[in-house]
């Protein structure tokens, strides 16, 4: 009895394994088409952004940029500290935490500066993500697949720039109905989100929403192309980045 029971269990186990793997094999996708990048798509080896903060005199000047971003991506307006932010403002000492100079001009002591995802060359968020829900694309954009995100928030702990937001509550309750941009989805409860450098707009040949709204005060282009706007701006002006000592190589530069 004992022996036959053992054999039975063995056979049952092996056949269950064979069956499930067989089923899994059969479920493989049969894709009959091919894929390509759109003709109009803007292309780059490494997208980067240069924000000319000298052209913004007050926090109000940044408002159109933030509104354009949050409208384009249906970002909810959640009150309190469980909020969602793709682009936002903070004081100089909060943005550039390494610069501990107490005797700065008023513009820096009191002024506001814009923050967004830095699309790092060495992104810690990508390094820590346990599912590959956040990843680096060939053009340097750090993107997210909200379908795959399990909401573990390791990326939020990992990001040194506080660029990531978690949907603590259902975001739909905090977005107008109909949504500001019906072409773009919203997010769902329990996933992390952040700025995408408007990858969906680049694919259609459009520059990022904030860049368009900035009337030339924010440049966007290929950092690997010496003739690009961003490279020219960086060659002619003094620029800084957030927390450069961490080696993440942020892709967002500030002219100050």
């Amino acid at each position: 009895m004992n022996n036959s029971r053992r054999t039975f269990l063995k056979v049952a186990g092996v056949s269950a394994f064979a069956l499930t793997t067989g089923v899994a094999g059969a479920a493989q996708a049969k894709i009959i088409g091919t894929y390509e990048q759109g003709d109009k798509a803007l292309k780059a080896k490494r997208w980067a952004m240069v924000i000319d903060t000298r052209k913004f005199t007050s926090a109000d000047d940044y408002k159109p940029l933030i509104d354009a971003c949050h409208k384009a991506h249906n970002v909810p307006a959640i009150p309190g500290n469980q909020e969602i932010k793709w682009m936002w403002l903070d004081h100089y000492d909060r943005v550039f935490t390494d610069d501990m100079n107490a005797n700065l001009p008023d513009k820096f002591k009191k002024g506001m500066f814009p923050l967004l995802c830095n699309h790092c060359t060495n992104p810690p968020c990508v390094r820590v993500c346990p599912t590959g829900a956040t990843y680096k694309m060939h053009d340097g954009i750090i993107a997210m697949d909200y379908h795959r995100c399990i909401g573990c928030r390791f990326c939020m702990a990992g990001c040194p720039y506080g660029a990531r937001s978690f949907n603590f509550v259902d975001p739909r309750k905090f977005i107008a109905d109909p949504v500001p941009n019906p072409e773009y989805p919203t997010r769902m409860i329990g996933v992390v989100e952040k700025c995408t450098f408007c990858a969906e707009r680049l694919a259609k040949g459009l520059r990022p929403a904030c860049v368009e709204a900035a009337n030339g005060a924010v440049m966007f282009g290929d950092l690997d192309d010496p003739n690009s706007d961003v490279r020219k701006a960086l060659a002619e002006n003094f620029s800084i980045r957030r927390k450069p000592s961490l080696g993440t190589q942020p892709g967002v530069y500030y002219l100050i």
Binding site: G33, T34, Y35, G38, M137, H138, A203
Partner: peptide
């Protein structure tokens, strides 16, 4: 394909 490879055009059979 769209999210990871920036291939946002599908060429059908």
């Amino acid at each position: 394909q769209a999210l990871r490879n920036e291939a946002r055009v599908y060429v059908s059979s």
